[in-house]
């Protein structure tokens, strides 16, 4: 239960698509991670060096640094289930149910 999620979202410019990705991630964090997260958004247009250092090849890329393992997913964040699966995060409510048993 003390799991802390550290997520970084890389987007390109302040486009409607970038904003949609940010909103989707905010929704996933709020609904699924229940306050135990740290979320950063990086615009690769504004901070190209940071993207280069982290070898970000494309956007939107979502990186999960914590908890391990490190995971990167790429693409549309609208489907919560697929995002969680990609990041190797089991749903918190599912997790609760399991521990409750």
């Amino acid at each position: 239960m003390n799991k802390k999620f550290r997520l970084t979202l890389f987007v390109t410019g302040q486009t409607p698509r970038s904003e949609r990705s940010i909103r989707n991630l905010q929704r996933i964090c709020a609904e699924e991670l229940q306050g135990t997260y740290e979320m950063t958004v990086i615009d690769v247009v504004e901070q190209p060096q940071l993207a280069e250092d982290l070898k970000i090849l494309a956007t939107p890329t979502l990186v999960k640094e914590l908890p391990p393992p490190l995971r990167r997913v790429i693409g549309d964040l609208s489907d919560t289930e697929k995002v969680l699966l990609g990041l190797d995060i089991s749903r918190v409510d599912g997790f609760n149910k399991e521990t409750g048993k």
Binding site: G13, V45, L57, A58, T59, R71, I74, G75, D76
Partner: peptide, 26 residues
Amino acid sequence: GKNLGLPIDLGNSCSEIESIDSAGRI
């Protein structure tokens, strides 16, 4: 050996991505 990231959507659907080249061009 570079990590592109796992595509969230697998199957028939396609998603739009921005590619970043070595010069930072999008």
